[in-house]
């Protein structure tokens, strides 16, 4: 098991079961069905693993996973997780703030954004052999979002190493944004001056924006975001209201002062 200190950022909501968290995944590199990642991610080689960090940083380079994980002490962060498809879970991640890793590589003054990239390995990822998405999956954050203490690099779940279907060995978790921002199986981090390309915005710009902040007042063009279904809540649990910034408004609303969240969805 991994030893991780509890965190004041954890919610006291009851976490979903390990089975729920590991058998209901959107990880299209392994297929379109929510059960596909659990079925096919076993073939993924996660050791050796390294992360290439570059762009506008003082200490660019290829960092071995073990080295990356030594950046800061591991914490357990029990976060709400809200998918853009309007379902949600509560997940006990283990990781450390992305800010610590970024500080280590010394962002240059011109750096405004952080671009992240998932592994491209079609021989181990059947979904990458099918069309539909321009692989590899890419995501990004504004630098201040990336430096926010809630933004986590996760390497574990429920006290153990991260299961492959959940984005092993290293994934991002941005709890106030829709789940697709929380890019899995990261191999590359690049600091940039311009807003980086992100997979879903490139695919459907009308439906998915760069920010993707959880917002009950701004609907997806095809469905309401006002409420969500908690996975595991039972057949007759109905829906619960979605909270602004997924309940993290106190911590993150300040990042978006003056920004029109309807335009910048």
């Amino acid at each position: 098991g991994l030893s991780a200190a509890p965190s004041a950022y954890s919610t006291d909501a009851k976490p979903n079961t390990l089975e729920e968290i590991t058998s209901y995944n959107n990880f299209y590199e392994f297929g379109w069905d929510k059960g596909d990642p659990a079925k096919y991610a076993g073939a993924l080689t996660t050791d050796p693993w390294s992360v290439e960090i570059g762009g506008l940083v003082g200490r660019p380079g290829r960092y071995d996973l073990a080295d990356v994980l030594k950046t800061a002490p591991l914490e357990e962060r029990i976060y709400r997780f809200r998918c853009v498809e309007a379902w949600s879970m509560v997940i006990p991640w283990i990781g450390f703030p992305l800010a610590a890793l970024l500080a280590r590589v010394e962002p240059q003054p011109g750096a405004k954004y952080v671009a992240l990239e998932t592994l491209l390995r079609p021989e181990e990822m059947p979904g990458q052999r099918a069309g539909g998405i321009d692989w590899p999956y890419v995501e990004g954050l504004r630098l201040d979002e990336a430096m926010h203490p809630l933004t986590l690099l996760a390497s574990g779940l429920y006290g153990e190493e991260l299961p492959k279907q959940n984005g092993a060995p290293l994934r991002l978790v941005v709890p106030w944004k829709y789940g697709f921002k929380s890019i899995k199986s990261i191999v590359k981090i690049t600091l940039t001056a311009e807003e980086p390309r992100t997979t879903w915005k490139a695919l459907q710009p009308r439906e998915y924006g760069f920010y993707a902040n959880v917002n009950p007042e701004v609907d997806h063009p095809r469905w309401s975001q006002a409420s969500e279904r908690r996975i595991g809540a039972g057949l007759l649990a109905g829906r619960e209201p979605t909270l602004m910034f997924n309940g993290y408004a106190d911590e993150v609303a300040g990042l978006y002062a003056g920004l029109d969240l309807r335009k910048n969805y």
């Binding site: 089975e19 058998s23 209901y24 379902w87 057949l235």
Partner: peptide, 8 residues
């Protein structure tokens, strides 16, 4: 399955 609502 873990999401009986959608499955049903």
């Amino acid at each position: 399955g873990v999401d009986p609502v959608k499955a049903i």
